[in-house]
Simulated assay, not measured.
Amino acid sequence: MIRVLLADDEAMVRAGVGAILAADDGIEVVAEAADGHEAVEQVRLSRPDVALLDIRMPRLDGLAAAAETRRVRPETAVVMLTTFGEEEYIERALGEGASGFLLKSGDPRELIAGVRAVAEGAAYLSPKVARWAIAQLSGGQRLSRSADARQRIATLTGREREVLALVGAGLSNADIARTLHVVEGTVKAYVSTILNRLEVRNRVQAAIAAYEAGLVSAETS
């Protein structure tokens, strides 16, 4: 069972999102919060697998709550849920260690898919957000970023690069373990080492580095 914290300052939104999640027998909303401070406190108390955070909340916004959640309980995957698709929010959310970014205007099936993906150790961006991220990677700074990414990835072993390519392709730890015929604990150890060596905060940033270095294509990522 995937345990979820749902944080949004609008009660009707919490009710609607909660109803969508309740339709999946493998997901349980174990706590709710109406502001960022309450969300972080519920992370401490309820120890959810996934924290689903609205970006704009009183007292402490979702981006700050994401950073605090990653500090107090790194095991909890963070997914940002918002009506706002502006670039600044996407960049900040990923920078604060979010593993997923979903738009409230998206298909309800994206919500289920996103929660399941991050709970399994993968990353998930709504299609609109993913298109923006790929467009950013294709911008004018691509060559300099690619050179930097290749230099960083050169420090990885062959096996670590193989794991990174699979992370970039969007596979979860369990999927990678099956692909490489190893136990999931071994994959987790590889991913942790990769994040440390690349000096990135989460799988999304690692996947971007894999794309920039040419380990995966835009279509695959």
Rank of each mutant, 00 (worst) to 15 (best):
residue 84 F to L: 10
residue 164 L to W: 03
residue 2 I to V: 15
residue 5 L to V: 05
residue 99 S to C: 10
residue 7 A to W: 03
residue 77 A to D: 00
residue 33 A to E: 02
residue 162 E to L: 12
residue 46 S to T: 05
residue 34 A to S: 14
residue 46 S to K: 07
residue 159 R to F: 10
residue 70 R to H: 06
residue 141 Q to W: 11
residue 32 E to S: 02
residue 103 L to I: 14
residue 44 R to N: 11
residue 114 G to D: 01
residue 197 R to L: 10
residue 39 A to W: 00
residue 29 V to C: 02
residue 127 P to G: 12
residue 167 V to A: 04
residue 80 M to I: 14
residue 131 R to V: 12
residue 51 A to F: 02
residue 165 A to V: 11
residue 172 S to W: 08
residue 34 A to Y: 06
residue 187 V to M: 01
residue 152 R to Y: 07
residue 31 A to Q: 01
residue 129 V to Y: 05
residue 26 G to I: 00
residue 84 F to D: 12
residue 4 V to I: 07
residue 54 D to K: 08
residue 96 E to D: 02
residue 93 A to K: 06
residue 170 G to Y: 06
residue 15 A to G: 12
residue 40 V to E: 00
residue 211 Y to R: 15
residue 114 G to F: 04
residue 19 A to H: 13
residue 149 A to E: 01
residue 175 D to F: 07
residue 13 V to D: 00
residue 143 L to C: 03
residue 172 S to I: 06
residue 203 R to N: 13
residue 148 D to T: 15
residue 186 T to R: 13
residue 6 L to N: 06
residue 186 T to E: 01
residue 23 A to S: 14
residue 59 R to A: 13
residue 109 R to E: 12
residue 75 E to Q: 15
residue 15 A to C: 05
residue 168 G to Y: 11
residue 49 D to W: 00
residue 117 A to D: 00
residue 126 S to L: 07
residue 203 R to W: 06
residue 45 L to C: 05
residue 203 R to H: 14
residue 195 L to N: 04
residue 175 D to I: 10
residue 149 A to P: 06
residue 68 E to N: 06
residue 136 Q to I: 09
residue 8 D to K: 11
residue 92 R to T: 13
residue 96 E to K: 12
residue 21 L to T: 08
residue 79 V to M: 04
residue 167 V to E: 00
residue 100 G to N: 04
residue 20 I to A: 01
residue 73 R to V: 02
residue 47 R to L: 05
residue 141 Q to M: 09
residue 122 A to I: 11
residue 207 A to S: 12
residue 197 R to D: 01
residue 207 A to C: 07
residue 26 G to L: 04
residue 51 A to C: 06
residue 120 E to K: 15
residue 121 G to Y: 04
residue 153 I to R: 05
residue 143 L to K: 12
residue 38 E to M: 14
residue 107 D to T: 08
residue 191 V to Q: 07
residue 133 A to S: 08
residue 14 R to G: 09
residue 30 V to P: 02
residue 183 V to W: 06
residue 56 R to M: 10
residue 197 R to I: 03
residue 112 I to F: 02
residue 131 R to W: 09
residue 61 D to C: 11
residue 90 I to Y: 04
residue 119 A to N: 03
residue 47 R to S: 03
residue 122 A to W: 14
residue 147 A to K: 14
residue 8 D to A: 08
residue 23 A to I: 07
residue 131 R to L: 14
residue 146 S to L: 00
residue 27 I to R: 01
residue 79 V to G: 03
residue 103 L to H: 13
residue 145 R to H: 13
residue 45 L to G: 01
residue 215 L to C: 09
residue 15 A to K: 15
residue 123 A to G: 08
residue 92 R to C: 04
residue 158 G to T: 15
residue 123 A to R: 10
residue 40 V to I: 09
residue 192 S to H: 12
residue 204 V to E: 00
residue 95 G to V: 14
residue 22 A to C: 12
residue 120 E to Q: 14
residue 53 L to V: 13
residue 144 S to C: 02
residue 112 I to D: 00
residue 2 I to K: 02
residue 78 V to T: 12
residue 171 L to F: 15
residue 98 A to I: 08
residue 128 K to N: 13
residue 181 H to G: 09
residue 30 V to A: 05
residue 124 Y to I: 10
residue 44 R to P: 04
residue 50 V to C: 02
residue 71 R to E: 09
residue 18 G to Y: 11
residue 47 R to W: 00
residue 166 L to A: 14
residue 1 M to Q: 07
residue 139 G to V: 03
residue 133 A to L: 12
residue 109 R to G: 15
residue 190 Y to F: 13
residue 146 S to G: 13
residue 216 V to C: 03
residue 108 P to R: 15
residue 188 K to Y: 04
residue 186 T to G: 05
